[in-house]
């Protein structure tokens, strides 16, 4: 039925068994963001070597969508060049989730993207619109 489509098995799997969960010691980049609407928290630690994301961990708490999205994001990022990571778009994230997200839940799905972008660029260069 419809809900099983929305909470697809792989999303629930990432929620229950998050990949790359935890902290890195002495990360090169570390950043956290809250979703003030629901109190969801996602933080990411990065180790950068020669412009490449050599390692990444995330931590946080919140709904299945925000946490699964963060877990999926870390899988995608490992081994990626930082300049490529900066190009990841809202659509890339939503396509990967592969489910229709209601406007109220969009912020949950895009929280990890916000952490990545703000962490990798610094807040000044980030367009808030991208995460709404």
């Amino acid at each position: 039925m419809a809900d099983d489509q929305f909470y697809r098995e792989f999303i629930l799997d990432h929620y229950r068994n998050p990949r790359n969960f935890g902290r890195l010691e002495g990360p090169d980049i570390s950043h956290e963001e809250y979703n003030p609407l629901c109190g969801d928290l996602v933080g990411m630690d990065f180790r950068i070597e020669d412009g490449m994301i050599a390692d990444v961990r995330f931590h946080g708490r919140g709904c299945a969508i925000s946490q699964a999205s963060a877990s999926l994001m870390t899988e995608r990022l490992k081994g990626m060049r930082l300049e490529d990571a900066r190009k990841i778009s809202k659509d890339d994230v939503l396509n990967e989730l592969g489910i229709e997200i209601s406007p109220a839940r969009l912020k949950c799905a895009l929280l990890s993207l916000k952490v990545l972008k703000v962490g990798a660029y610094g807040l000044a260069n980030v367009d808030e619109e991208e995460f709404e």
Binding site: A2, D3, F6, Y7, L37, C38, G39, D40, G62, C63, A64, I65, S102, R105, C108
Partner: peptide, 28 residues
């Protein structure tokens, strides 16, 4: 199960509930 996931599934059953901090963050 996070309340937002609860509310999303309830919504799909046509049941409207509030999820979040209800504007009482210190209480939560």
């Amino acid at each position: 199960v996070h309340p937002h996931d609860v509310a999303t599934i309830l919504d799909r059953h046509g049941v409207c509930v509030r999820s979040g901090h209800n504007c009482t963050m210190p209480l939560l």
